[in-house]
C-alpha cells in the first residue's frame, strides 16, 4: 500500500509549525500505524532529515502514551483502540492521511506530534487517590464489594490517561478523565471516605489548569480507546454537587 502522510511539524513550543506531506510506499496492510511512522522516520533519517517526533511506548494499547489525531479523529478511524493498535488495513490504498497532535489549551505542544500532558498528573495529585499508608491494611476480603460495583469501578479504572477525551472535546474539557477516576474510587467502599473532598479537589484543579466545561456532547466516550461512558461524568457531577451543597 502507499499513502500520502500529511503531518504537523513544529520544532518546539515557540515555533509556528506547519503541515508537511510525505509519500510513503510499500506498506503492508498488517503494519500498525506507528510502525508506518517508524518506516517513514527511517526514510527521513536516511535522507538526512529530522524524523517526526511522536509519543509511543507499549504499543499494545495500555500505557496511554500514543496520542495522534488521525484524519480528524483521536487515535484514528478504528474504534476502541489507541493509535498503536490501529493498522494500515483500516485505510485505503493511496489515501492522504492527516496526522495532527492533540490540540487543547490544557496540553501545550512540545514538538511535532508530542504534547505535554502533565496536567493529568496534577489533577490526580490533587485527590485521585485513597489516603492509605503502606502496611496498615486489613485483610482484603474483610469488606465484600458487590460484583456489580467492582465491575463498574473497573470500567472507569480502565482509563489509560491518553487524553483522547480532551483532544476530541470541542470544549477541551477533561471531564471524562476526571470522572473516570472519581467514579472508579467512589464505587468502592474504600474510596467513599474521601469521595467528597476528592471530587471537589480534582475538579478545582481541572478548572485551574485551563480545561473547559462539559457540555455533554458525548464525543469523548466515542473516541475513548477504552470506551469509558459519560455516565461516569454524571456520577462526578452528582458527587461534586452533593459535596458542594454540604459545604
Amino acid at each position: 500500500m502507499k499513502f500520502k502522510i500529511k503531518i504537523w511539524r513544529q520544532k518546539n513550543a515557540k515555533d509556528k509549525g506547519k503541515f508537511v506531506t510525505y509519500d510513503i510506499d510499500n506498506i503492508s496492510a498488517d503494519t500498525s500505524f506507528l510502525e508506518m511512522l517508524d518506516i517513514l522516520n527511517d526514510k527521513l533519517i536516511s535522507e538526512g532529515k529530522d524524523p517526526v517526533a511522536f509519543d509511543h511506548d507499549c504499543r499494545e494499547g495500555i500505557c496511554g502514551m500514543c496520542s495522534l489525531y488521525i484524519n480528524g479523529e483521536a487515535h484514528g478511524p478504528d474504534t476502541l483502540v489507541t493509535t498503536c493498535q490501529l493498522h494500515m488495513r483500516k485505510f485505503k490504498d493511496g489515501q492522504t492521511i492527516t496526522v495532527e497532535p492533540w490540540r487543547s489549551a490544557g496540553f501545550p505542544l512540545v514538538k511535532d506530534l508530542i504534547v505535554n500532558r502533565n496536567a493529568f498528573d496534577k489533577i490526580l495529585q490533587a485527590g485521585g487517590f485513597i489516603s492509605v499508608n503502606t502496611g496498615g491494611a486489613q485483610d482484603a476480603n474483610t469488606i465484600p464489594i458487590p460484583k456489580k460495583d467492582a465491575d463498574e469501578s473497573m470500567d472507569a479504572a480502565a482509563c489509560v490517561g491518553c487524553g483522547a477525551c480532551v483532544a476530541t472535546c470541542k470544549n477541551g474539557s477533561a471531564m471524562l478523565f476526571v470522572a473516570a477516576r472519581v467514579s472508579s474510587l467512589a464505587k468502592l467502599p474504600q474510596g467513599k471516605a474521601e469521595a467528597a473532598t476528592r471530587a471537589k479537589a480534582m475538579l478545582a484543579k481541572m478548572d485551574e489548569l485551563g480545561f473547559g466545561a462539559c457540555t455533554n456532547t458525548g464525543a469523548c466516550q466515542v473516541e475513548c480507546p477504552k470506551g469509558i461512558s459519560i455516565s461516569h461524568i454524571a456520577r462526578l457531577n452528582r458527587e461534586f454537587l452533593s459535596a458542594k451543597i454540604k459545604d
Partner: peptide, 18 residues
C-alpha cells in the same frame, strides 16, 4: 467563551464528528 479558551489557539485541520 470559557470553552473556546480551553480549546486553545490552534485548531485541527481535519475533524470528524462521530
Amino acid at each position: 467563551l470559557y470553552n473556546r479558551k480551553a480549546r486553545g489557539s490552534s485548531s485541527y485541520l481535519a475533524t470528524v464528528i462521530p
